[in-house]
Simulated assay, not measured.
Amino acid sequence: MTAGLRIGVITFPGTLDDVDAARAVRRAGGEPVALWHDDADLHGVDAVVVPGGFSYGDYLRAGAIAARSPVMGPVVEAGRAGMPVLGICNGFQILCEAGLLPGALVRNQGLRFVCREVGLRVEADTAWTSSFTVGQELRVPLKSGEGRYVADAATLDELEGEGRVVFRYSEPAPNGALRDIAGVSSADGRVVGLMPHPEHAIDDLTGPSTDGLGLFTSVLAQLATA
Score class of each variant (00 low, 15 high):
Asp203Met: 04
Pro174Gln: 10
Gly52His: 12
Pro13Glu: 06
Ala81Lys: 15
Asp17Ile: 06
Glu171Lys: 01
Leu215Gln: 14
Thr2Met: 14
Asp18Pro: 07
Leu215Gly: 05
Asp204Gln: 05
Thr217Ala: 14
Phe113Thr: 09
Arg61Met: 05
Trp36Arg: 04
Gly44Arg: 08
Asp38Tyr: 11
Pro102Leu: 03
Val122Asp: 13
Asn90Tyr: 15
Ala124Met: 05
Glu199Asn: 08
Gly4Trp: 07
Ser170Phe: 09
Ala173Met: 02
Leu120Met: 07
Gly44Ala: 02
Ala221Gly: 14
Thr155Asp: 01
Asp180His: 14
Ala173Phe: 06
Gly57Phe: 05
Tyr59Cys: 13
Ser186Tyr: 03
Ala224Leu: 05
Gly189Ala: 06
Gly99Ile: 08
Ser130Glu: 13
Ala67Lys: 08
Gly63Leu: 11
Pro13Ala: 00
Thr155Ile: 10
Met72Asp: 02
Ala81Gln: 09
Asn175Arg: 13
Val114Cys: 06
Ile94Lys: 15
Gln109Asp: 15
Val71Phe: 15
Ser130Lys: 10
Tyr169Asn: 02
Val165Tyr: 05
Val134Trp: 02
Pro141Phe: 00
His37Ser: 12
Thr210Gly: 01
Gly145Trp: 02
Gly212Gln: 10
Ala104Glu: 06
Val85Gln: 10
Pro51His: 02
Leu138Pro: 06
Val25Glu: 14
Ile94Val: 14
Arg190Pro: 04
Arg80Gly: 12
Asp18Lys: 01
Ala182Leu: 06
Phe216Ala: 11
Glu123Gln: 07
Asp125Asn: 07
Gln93Tyr: 10
Val184Thr: 00
Gly135His: 12
Val184Trp: 03
Glu171Ala: 04
Leu120Lys: 02
Asp39Thr: 10
Glu158Gly: 00
Val25Gly: 03
Ala151Asp: 02
Asp20Gly: 09
Pro141Tyr: 05
Val114Glu: 12
Phe54Thr: 13
Gly57Lys: 13
Val191Met: 06
Gly79Asp: 09
Val45Ser: 14
Leu60Asp: 09
Val134Lys: 06
Glu146Val: 14
Val49Ile: 03
Ile7Val: 13
Gly8Pro: 03
Gly193Glu: 00
Val9Tyr: 09
Leu178Pro: 02
Leu213Asn: 09
Ala67Gly: 08
Ala3Arg: 07
Trp36Leu: 09
Gly214Leu: 11
Pro208Asp: 15
Ala47Ser: 07
Glu77Phe: 01
Phe12Thr: 08
Asn108Phe: 03
Val134Ile: 15
Ala34Tyr: 13
Glu146Thr: 12
Phe167His: 01
Glu158Ile: 00
Gly161Val: 10
Leu220His: 11
His43Trp: 07
Arg68Pro: 08
Ala22Gly: 15
Gly8His: 10
Asp152Cys: 13
Gly57Tyr: 11
Ala127Glu: 14
Ser186Thr: 00
Gly189Gln: 11
Leu220Gly: 08
Arg168Trp: 03
Arg68Val: 15
Leu138Thr: 02
Pro74Asn: 06
Trp128Phe: 04
Val85Arg: 05
Gly189Thr: 04
Ala28Val: 09
Leu156Cys: 02
Gly53Leu: 09
Pro74Lys: 05
